[in-house]
Structures are given as C-alpha cells and as structure tokens.
Computed example of a mutant assay.
Amino acid sequence: MKALVTGGAGFIGSHLAEALAAKGITVHVIDNLSTGNSQYVPDGAIWHQVDIISKEAEQLILRERPDIVFHQAAQVDVQRSVADPGYDASINIAGTANILQACAKASVKKVVYASSCAVYGDLNVSLIDENHPAQPISFYGISKWAPELYLQVFHQLYGLKYTILRYANVYGPRQTPKGEGGVVAIFFDRIKRGLPLNIFGDGEQTRDFVYVKDVVSANLAAIERGDRQIIHVGTSVPTSINELVFMLRKIHHEKFSVVYTHERAGDIKHSCLNHAKAVSLLNWKPLYDLFQGLYETYQLSKDESV
C-alpha cells in the first residue's frame, strides 16, 4: 500500500506518518513547513516540500498515485482565522479542493479527512453526536466544514471514497504552542518558561481532550472502515480548563501562576464529542485518559527532538 499524508511534518501528521511507516506502508509526505518541522518526518517516509494549494501538489499525486490520502494539512489557529479569514479559506478550503481534485484524477481509493469539532460552534449541549447540526461561530469552523461538503460532492461526481474524522481537542508531543486547539502545548510552553498561564474567561469552559496517539489509531482504523461516514474522534469526557490546570499542577509539582482575562471572539464555551459511532463503525476507542496523556506529553516535552 502507498499512502500520502498532507501536513506530514506537522503535529498530528508526523505521528500518523510514523505509524504508517512502522506498518511497512510506503509513505509520502506533503508539507510546506509553514508550521511543520522537517525533523518530524519519520525515517523511511518520502518528504516533498510542497504547498497543498500548488500545481506541484496535484502533479505529485498524479505521479505517485497513492492508494490512500490522509488530509491533515490545515491552518488551525482560530484567532488567525478571525483576523484573516481569506488566508484561512485559501488553505483549508481551496487547498483541500486542490487535493481532492488531484485524488479524483489519480483514482485514489480513499481520502481520510481531518475535520474538527469547531464545525459545531457553541451548541450548548453536554455531548455532541454526529447528527447535531454544523453551526460554526468562527471562520476556522467554516473552513473545516466546507471540505466535508466538497468530499460528499466529489464522491457523487467521481466515486471518490472518503471518511471524515471530526477531531476533538487533540494534544500531545510535537504540538506547537499556538492556536486555541493547542491549549495544552501553550500551557506546557509557558510552564517551561516560568510564565503564568493565561485563561480566557472563568476557566469553566470545557473541552474534550484526546491524545494524539489515539487520533492516529482512529486514522489507521479508517483505512478499511467508515466509508462515506462522519465520525467523531474524542474521549466523550468533558474537562474544564480549571481541571486541566489542576492536573498540570500535579504533574509539574513546582508552583506556577494563573491569570484570568477576558473571553475571546470565536471561542466556544463547551465542546465534547460522543464517540459511540467510532466504537461501532471503526472498532476504535481512546486508550489514554487525560492524565496519562498529559504525563507522557510532559515527559517527552523535556526532549525538544520528540
């Protein structure tokens, strides 16, 4: 099997490329290094420094004709999407359309698309399932939802198979300390530098934090399962930011301060994904609870090469 991972030098993509290569799968990586790191591309993977919005990306897919494409590349900073929605759309929407068009031309067997819980906006429900309506409240949420519609139409027009994985808040080693989804990385970075943790609002906003290794296993499960489905990848366990800080204090041991400030535009108050569909269709469930994942991330973050 031959796989291509867009964003394969980035946070989730590099872990996925590593897991695919470990299975003996031929792995090609597309990454323009706007946020990725070439050191994260695993040994054995073939790295192409190419932008997903470029003609070169299309030509690469047509030349290599991968069996499966894992589309991880994206602009993921919510606040940047608010400040520059055009840039956000150019990558997440136009870039995805470019990749999908190439996949259709190259007769790629399947695309696994990394979507986001941000498509739901602030639904104010305790546990979100896949039947809840998409009501994004940020341009980032819109830009992650639109490619889902593109995938459905590409299937209707060209028979392109797909699985859409809507991620909860992913965390783990290699995550950069930027973007709302990277709150764990932001906090670890500030702890390391002896800076206070900034919490926007009262800290009672909740998130579903899912470890990157569990996200990778869901992607691997989607190779053979979940065709034409939208599936949540999360823990189904809500955690407040205040609870997250409590766990970090237990892990770090040394004191650090916390500063509460105003809420930010585009931020969601509560988000937790029901993963029952993933259990039934992908035969997947998360293996890491939050404390385990945080502890492993903390230990590995001491080594900048992870």
Results as ranks from 00 to 15, higher is better:
220 L>F: 07
273 L>H: 10
61 I>N: 00
67 D>G: 10
205 Q>C: 08
271 S>K: 00
51 D>I: 03
224 E>R: 05
253 H>E: 13
31 D>Q: 03
116 S>C: 08
302 K>S: 01
23 K>M: 01
273 L>A: 09
38 S>D: 03
75 Q>A: 06
60 L>W: 03
101 Q>P: 13
94 A>I: 15
248 L>I: 11
175 Q>K: 01
96 T>W: 02
238 P>Y: 09
202 D>T: 13
220 L>A: 00
287 L>F: 11
175 Q>Y: 02
230 I>G: 09
138 S>Y: 06
4 L>F: 04
123 L>Q: 01
46 I>R: 15
138 S>M: 09
159 G>W: 05
67 D>S: 09
130 E>F: 08
215 V>E: 02
189 D>Y: 07
305 S>K: 11
35 T>F: 03
57 A>S: 12
12 I>D: 07
64 E>C: 04
200 F>T: 05
103 C>W: 08
93 I>Y: 07
37 N>I: 00
185 A>D: 04
200 F>C: 05
76 V>W: 12
266 G>N: 02
186 I>G: 06
159 G>E: 10
98 N>P: 08
270 H>I: 12
293 G>A: 04
221 A>R: 11
156 Q>T: 14
188 F>C: 09
13 G>W: 15
93 I>Q: 09
21 A>V: 15
161 K>N: 15
116 S>K: 12
225 R>Q: 11
13 G>H: 14
101 Q>E: 14
64 E>Q: 07
137 I>C: 14
239 T>Y: 05
184 V>K: 00
250 K>M: 14
187 F>P: 00
141 G>D: 11
282 L>G: 12
233 V>L: 09
283 N>M: 01
297 T>Y: 04
145 W>L: 15
143 S>N: 12
206 T>G: 01
285 K>Q: 14
50 V>R: 06
137 I>S: 13
124 N>S: 12
245 V>G: 11
78 V>K: 08
163 T>M: 00
301 S>F: 05
173 P>M: 02
149 L>T: 11
251 I>G: 05
13 G>N: 08
165 L>Y: 11
